[in-house]
Amino acid sequence: MDAGILLQILFWGIYAGCIYILLATGLNLIFGVMKIVNFAHGEFLMLGAYITATLFLFSGINPYVIILFSMLALIGIGAVVERLCFRPILGTGKLNEIFLSIGLIYVIQNAAAMIWGDEWQSVKSPYAGITVPVGTLTVPLDYVIIMVVTAAILCGLYLFLNRTRTGREMRAASQNRKGAMLVGVNVERMDILSFGIGCALAAAAGTLWVVSGQVFNPYMGSIPAVKAFAIIILGGLGSIPGAIVGGLLYGVAENGAAYFLGGVWKDAISFVILIVVLVIRPTGLFGERGE
């Protein structure tokens, strides 16, 4: 086993992890405030991917700029979905939320298929083909940009949650919903906002998926979403640092598994990890809450 290959697996793992981190962080943000797990989260990644690809093909603007439009669009879509679908059933049982997500998956996937067709597509990033040396490796420039963009988005999220009044209100609502209500936080507004931001993070993940040259179709969202669930279970439900560490570990594990066991195991390995972790610790690796 030569060290170059290990480094390569590590680098590709971190790159794959970036997309999963954004997705898992969004899920965790929504879970923290609303205490729901949105199984349709991958569909927002898919929408983000398509919105970016469409805008890019029409306007030719750099896709790393379009990421902002895509995120804004998904904040809007997320807010509408929260208001129309999740708000009415909040508190009526967790099974209902899961079933409602299935309805959303049907609607969003096939609405997208009606708009964009159901073939696999891909988009060529303006930097495709350019490689840069990182240490002993030669890697595509896009992958480096993706890591930087992910880090920037996470820093932005950190600043928002810690330095702004709305962000602090959101954290209050996630720590103690009733207590936050008592001190005058509009928790329903926080619900909409956290759902919107969660969807925007998924849109960012979708955009990065597209610019890295990976293929996408309307049904692409389910697998990354379930991987994001595996990550938030590894990192603990509701814990954003947990999602980041979990996402990186997960990306590396996945690429390692694909290399050592063969490509077909790339998707299944996440569930093997998930099931093993849950058998050992039913609340997740770092999960404090009994949820």
């Binding site: 199984f39 899961i98 595996a230 195991w265 299944a268 099931i275």
Partner: peptide, 18 residues
């Protein structure tokens, strides 16, 4: 719990397919 069970069963189908 409900969510974890849903995820594990969902993943199980994919593992079986693999």
């Amino acid at each position: 719990r409900e969510w974890f069970l849903a995820m594990v069963t969902f993943g199980f189908a994919i593992i079986v397919q693999t």
